[in-house]
């Protein structure tokens, strides 16, 4: 069943940058990676899926219903978003930030109940933030802050998790942990869609890849179908060698030093 559908969606920021004619279906249980060069429209695509941006034409549907017509709280109980560059000048602690994820579940005057506490604890445990509860969010490193935002999204207990470059600020170990976490959540039934800049990690973990180029979908398919020498050259403008991962057999990209690499 398609849980998230983009039907002939077009969008532009005041005519400057355009996404044109995007049609895409995400099925329940998918783990989809969106790849493409900088400025190709990956983040814009994610914001369209989340309903934050309104398409100029076409429709975005959540399980068949237009997302812009859904009640905000209802939508936030089903779809959580980990976005980039969230910062606040106020001294929220890590735990307070994660508890904000319960907002769409809580009544106006009601306090948090045992169910809310459980969801927060689980989110903290999954992101290994239990020791960070009273740390100030604004003083965390980029990677730690990223994990807090993932924990906040998990506290929403969503059916669908959308992530915008969740591994950007993370070192190798935390990158792997983040991907392992996404894969684990996906196995538990959460549909995951992530904008990714690391093509090799995307190929290792995602079930499906969407390659974007200049505001259009270039190709959609399994990692084996998408990660080919021709596609990478066409999308990223890079001449690369493709090999099989020695353990899991997924395609891996090797850059070829000395050969021209232009992002056009």
């Amino acid at each position: 069943m398609e849980v998230l559908t983009l039907d002939k969606v077009s969008f532009s920021y005041n005519g400057a940058f355009a996404m044109t004619d995007i049609s895409l279906g995400v099925k329940a249980g998918d783990f989809t990676g969106i790849i493409g060069p900088n400025g190709s429209g990956k983040s814009t695509l994610l914001k369209l899926m989340a309903g934050y941006l309104r398409p100029d034409s076409g429709r975005v549907l959540l399980a068949g219903q237009p997302v812009r017509k859904l009640e905000r709280r209802e939508m936030a109980r089903r779809v959580a978003v980990v976005s980039q560059g969230v910062q606040t000048g106020f001294a929220f602690t890590v735990e307070e930030m994660v508890r904000l994820g319960r907002l769409p579940h809580l009544g106006r005057w009601s306090s948090e109940g045992p169910g809310d506490a459980r969801a927060v604890e689980r989110a903290l445990a999954l992101t290994q933030l239990e020791g960070y509860r009273t740390r100030l969010f604004s003083r965390l490193s980029g990677g730690e802050a990223q994990r807090v935002l993932v924990a906040q999204a998990l506290a929403q207990e969503p059916e669908i998790l959308l992530l915008d470059e969740p591994t950007t600020y993370l070192d190798m170990a935390f990158q792997q942990e983040m991907f392992t976490l996404m894969a684990q959540l996906n196995r538990e039934g959460i549909t995951v869609v992530a904008v990714l800049h690391d093509v090799n990690m995307a190929a290792l973990y995602c079930k499906e890849l969407v390659a974007i180029k200049a505001g259009k979908i270039f190709t959609i398919g399994t990692p084996d179908q998408v990660i080919t020498r021709e596609n990478i050259l066409a999308v990223y403008g890079c001449s690369v060698e493709i090999s099989k991962h020695p353990l899991v057999g997924r395609p891996q990209v090797t850059l070829l030093p000395g050969l021209p690499c232009s992002a056009d």
Binding site: A50, R73, A76, R77, F90, E96, P104, Q152
Partner: peptide, 22 residues
């Protein structure tokens, strides 16, 4: 009445939107 939503807005309007704030 909007205290929790104000927390979310203090983190950022886009984030507040994703947390279910109109």
């Amino acid at each position: 009445w909007h205290a929790r939503e104000l927390d979310a807005l203090a983190v950022g309007e886009e984030q507040a939107y994703y947390l279910g704030v109109d």
